[in-house]
Every structure is written in C-alpha cells, then in structure tokens.
C-alpha cells in the first residue's frame, strides 16, 4: 500500500501542496484539479523526482527514499511531457528502456513484443517513431511504463493533446491495465476520470479537498461529475 502521510511541499515561499494525507491501494485513482493545483507536484513526489518538505511517503510502511531502487523497480511512470528518441523504433526504444529498468535482454524483447501488441503497435514495431501521431507516442509511453509490470502506475496528463477518438481508446487501455495494481492518473479533463476512476482525488487551494468515488461525489445533488467540478472550481480552468 502506498501512503502519503501529512505531506507538504514548498518551493521557496510558495506552498505547492499542504498537509496532504492519502492512501492508495489497488484500483484507479484520478487526480483532478485545475492546472497549478498541485497534481504534478504530488506525482513528482510519488515518482521520487522531488521530495516532501514535510511529511513522508511510505510504500508497505517504508519511506520510498529508503527503498531506493526497490521502489523504482515497482514503479511505472508516464510523464506529462513524454520524451523519446525520434530515430528509434518502438521495439528499439522499449528494449533500451527495459535495460535501464534492469530487465535482461531476452525477457525485454518478449515483454516488448507483448506490450506492443497490447497497445496495438505491433504492426509498426520496427518503424521509426519520428512519424508517429501523438496517440501512438502516448501508447509507446504506456508500454514503457508497463515494461517492469509495475505495482504502481503513474500517468501524468496522459490524454493531453490527443483527439477525442484517441482519448477514448487510451482510457480503455488504462482501464484494461488497472487490474492488480495502483493506477494514479492525473488530469484536468473531467470525462477522463468519470469513466475509469474508482476514486477521485481533488485539490483546492493546494490542499486535499476530497477523495471519494465518482458516485459518492455526485450524490443526489449533481447529475454528473462535471457539475461537481463546476460547483467546486467555478471559473477555474476545467475541461469537460
């Protein structure tokens, strides 16, 4: 289980997140808030890219910094700005990333082939990625995140920049990968969350506002999750 325990993150005098406490078990968690609310800050702390100013993040009771490579070994991450080598084919890229994840060459190749099939890129596995669409690149991104069969899969704005058809396809893919693992999905797009998240986490004014199921959040008062968000964030930037 992944626990964020009373975490505060400050950048100089600016407080990006304040006193956040959360528990993540298996399932899909949607981090939903307007831009600048602290979603990416939380994700960067969960991926050990930055560290809390106060509080701690624990995996199975041990602080993730102490777990070091053992924690990174169970982590799959797709950053908001996913980088790739344009002159590599998806197959070459996945085998290279697999090596960095400590997966031996033989396993890496078979794993890469399986994942390319899952993300429907098997027919272009040897084509250079420079000509790929945004959706195809994001699917390569998901495949690299899944290479080590992560127990924690973290996706930062994975549908940003995708057309509606690609977004639906991507959501279905994420839902299919969510079994037996924790998937943490950050987005400011309400419809991404509504269809696949078991729990929705919202921030307001850099503090945790709520963590509950979409159904519970809607209750009897609101017809859709979008209404809930408009009620909470008003004129803040929210994309339906």
């Amino acid at each position: 289980m992944l626990i964020v325990d009373n975490v505060t993150k400050k950048f100089g005098n600016f407080t990006a997140l304040q006193d956040v406490t959360l528990e993540f078990s298996n399932g899909v968690y949607g981090l939903l808030a307007p831009n600048g609310a602290g979603k990416t800050t939380l994700i960067k702390m969960l991926t050990t890219l930055i560290f809390p100013t106060k509080g701690q993040i624990l995996y199975d009771g041990v602080e993730i910094t102490k777990l070091d490579e053992a924690y990174r070994g169970i982590l799959g991450y797709l950053p908001q700005d996913f980088g790739f080598y344009r002159n590599y084919s998806p197959m070459q890229f996945l085998v290279y990333i697999a090596a960095l994840k400590g997966i031996d060459g033989k396993t890496a190749k078979s794993k890469a082939l399986k994942l390319l099939e899952v993300v429907a890129l098997l027919d272009v596995k040897d084509k250079k990625m420079r000509k790929f669409s945004g959706g195809m690149i994001q699917r390569v991104g998901i495949a690299q995140a899944m290479l080590n069969d992560p127990k924690i899969l973290i996706l930062d704005e994975p549908t940003a920049g995708l057309d509606p058809k690609e977004r639906v396809r991507f959501r279905n893919l994420i839902a299919s990968l969510a079994k037996d693992r924790t998937v943490i999905l950050s987005t400011h797009i309400v419809s991404d969350i509504e269809t696949i998240a078991d729990q929705v986490i919202m921030f307001k004014d850099h503090k945790l506002l709520c963590c509950d199921s979409p159904k519970a959040l809607k209750g009897d008062k609101f017809a859709s999750l979008e209404d809930v968000f408009m009620h909470i964030y008003g004129d803040d930037e929210v994309v339906a």
Partner: peptide
C-alpha cells in the same frame, strides 16, 4: 538537453540517469 521529458523519465528507473 535532449529534454522533452526523457531525462526526467530516466530518473525514475532502477538505474537512474544520474547513476549512469
């Protein structure tokens, strides 16, 4: 300088970009 998120991604792997 390759930037575009790849360095950040490599920092989350078992062997990080800094270790290499």
């Amino acid at each position: 300088m390759e930037g575009n998120g790849l360095y950040e991604l490599k920092m989350t792997f078992r062997y990080t970009a800094r270790q290499i």
